[in-house]
């Protein structure tokens, strides 16, 4: 399987919201490629929208990256939410129970409204 290595694109949106769009597979190889970027964002930002629509696979190390980032943002009083996971990624998130702790949105407008409140 040849697929582009996971990477992230970061955009600063209105209202102090930072969008992190993730591309590719959040597997062991992919996580190594993006974890430093996630750690920096979690350290610096307070309102983080993680756009998962271009993530094609999520393994437990990927979940760990999301959880650790969320914990770091929450520890500063901020918020991190997830947007638009594909069906297989959504199943892994819900099987882990992560949706009980991190909000998952399917509407970008609703996600932005939640972070902007």
């Amino acid at each position: 399987m040849t697929e582009e290595l996971a990477h992230i694109e970061v955009s600063d949106l209105a209202g102090g919201i930072t969008e992190v769009k993730v591309f590719g597979r959040m597997d062991i190889k992919g996580v190594f490629a993006i974890e430093d970027g996630f750690a920096k964002i979690a350290d610096e930002k307070h309102k983080v929208l993680v756009n998962l629509e271009a993530v094609t696979f999520l393994a437990s190390l990927g979940i760990r990256t999301l959880v650790m980032s969320c914990k770091a943002v929450a520890a500063k009083g901020g918020d991190l939410v997830l947007l638009n996971p594909q069906a297989n990624v959504d199943k892994v998130l819900k099987s882990s129970g992560i949706d009980q702790a991190i909000k998952i949105f399917t509407s970008r407008d609703e996600a932005l409204a939640y972070l902007g409140k």
Binding site: S60, V67, M68, K71, S95, I98
Partner: peptide, 23 residues
């Protein structure tokens, strides 16, 4: 274990095995 706590108290260890047993 799955996630059963608020994010601030969430433990990451054991989550992967929970996934294995669930999937």
């Amino acid at each position: 274990h799955g996630v059963d706590q608020p994010v601030a108290d969430m433990a990451v260890g054991g989550l992967g095995l929970h996934l294995v047993k669930t999937l």
